[in-house]
């Protein structure tokens, strides 16, 4: 399948309160058409900053200091604001975490979606309205023609998130970035929105970056997973391979910290939930070697002295660890 997005060596620097630090360091990511890549990590791991860098929506205190973001034959990292604005909403759609606040409270929802069509597709008022009603039907909003004139406060969180999804997909973008799209929703609604996601993925076939800290969401949705820790990718592999046996001790830790309900003949004692001891180090105060070493049960003197690069493993997997959960010929 064709390559949609190719990020190489992306580094994003911040300067706040007299401090200079990198929130994202030398990130390499590639995404093919129709593929769903999950970007997983704790808060502060750099996953949202990576997404904002792709969208050109970094806060003013941040800038891309190194690397390229190749998308549709252009390097987004070098595009000016006007060119980037033409890409945003048209070729790349973005879904935010907070459906309660990501729509304008003083505007009816229909026109808010129509706006993006009128902007990029130069659609007339009547055509835009028809297109929006079709989009509302596509994201399974009941009675689309009536909901067009609703204000956001008249809708539930799940319905609002459907509006935001319709907005992001309105121009049929080649790439969709969804930043924690279900986190703010209640569990039942989460399941519905995830199902909608999977259906739309099949129907439209856009490439998707799904940013989440919820591995249960990953298991249900993503083809491939990249795990981020302290601004770097520490492991990347196909979804099934990751859940079958993660290479990096951090990924193992994340997997152990989510509850799994087992049913059927294999159901036994519920597994104990284990949390990872300690916290993510702040990006301006990273240890010299592997950033995870202070919290890692397998850490050695080498881990504390020397940072492991992202190394290839069989099955197209990659991991940045000196002591991965696998036997390798050259591993010590």
């Amino acid at each position: 399948m064709s390559r949609v997005l190719d990020i190489e060596g992306l580094t994003v620097g911040f300067e706040t309160g007299g401090r200079r630090f990198d929130a994202v360091r030398e990130v390499d990511l590639a995404l093919d058409g129709g593929e769903v890549l999950a970007l997983v990590g704790e808060s502060g791991s750099g996953k949202s900053v990576t997404a904002l860098a792709v969208m050109g929506l970094l806060p003013e205190v941040a800038e891309i200091t190194a690397g390229t973001i190749r998308f549709e034959d252009r390097d987004l990292a070098r595009l000016g604001e006007a060119e980037m604005a033409a890409v945003r909403g048209a070729r790349i759609g973005l879904i935010f975490q907070e459906p309660m606040t990501s729509l304008n409270p003083t505007m009816r929802v229909g026109p808010q979606v129509a706006e993006v069509l009128r902007l990029h597709k130069r659609a007339g008022a009547a055509a835009a309205r028809r297109a929006v009603e079709e989009l509302f039907a596509l994201v399974r909003i009941p009675d689309p023609a009536a909901r067009y004139d609703d204000f956001p406060h008249q809708m539930s969180g799940g319905m609002r998130q459907r509006v935001v999804i319709a907005l992001a997909l309105a121009c049929r973008p080649a790439l969709l970035i969804a930043d924690e799209p279900t986190t703010a929703l209640d569990v039942t609604t989460q399941a519905q929105i995830l199902e909608l996601f999977r259906d739309l993925q099949r129907e439209i076939g856009q490439a998707t970056i799904l940013i989440t800290h919820d591995l249960a969401v990953v298991a249900e949705t993503a083809h491939r997973v990249a795990v981020m820790y302290a601004g770097r990718i520490v492991e990347e592999s196909a979804s099934e391979a990751l859940f079958a046996g993660a290479l990096h001790p951090y990924t193992r830790g994340l997997l152990r910290s989510i509850p799994v309900v087992r049913t059927g003949p294999a159901a036994g004692h519920p597994r104990r939930l284990v949390e990872i001891p300690g916290t993510v180090p702040p990006p301006w105060d990273l240890p010299q070697g592997c950033a995870f070493a202070p919290r890692c049960p397998r850490a050695s003197a080498r881990c504390r002295a020397e940072r492991p690069p992202l190394m290839p493993f069989d099955g197209g997997r990659r991991a940045a660890c000196w002591h991965p959960h696998v036997e390798r010929e050259d591993a010590a």
């Binding site: 929506l57 909403g89 990501s102 902007l119």
Partner: peptide, 21 residues
């Protein structure tokens, strides 16, 4: 606010966001 970020993600320019949103 988030709705401004949404408007930017739509590809709207700053001036238009100020006036329209």
């Amino acid at each position: 606010k988030d709705y401004v970020r949404t408007a930017r993600a739509k590809g709207m320019r700053r001036g238009a966001i100020l006036v329209r949103h």
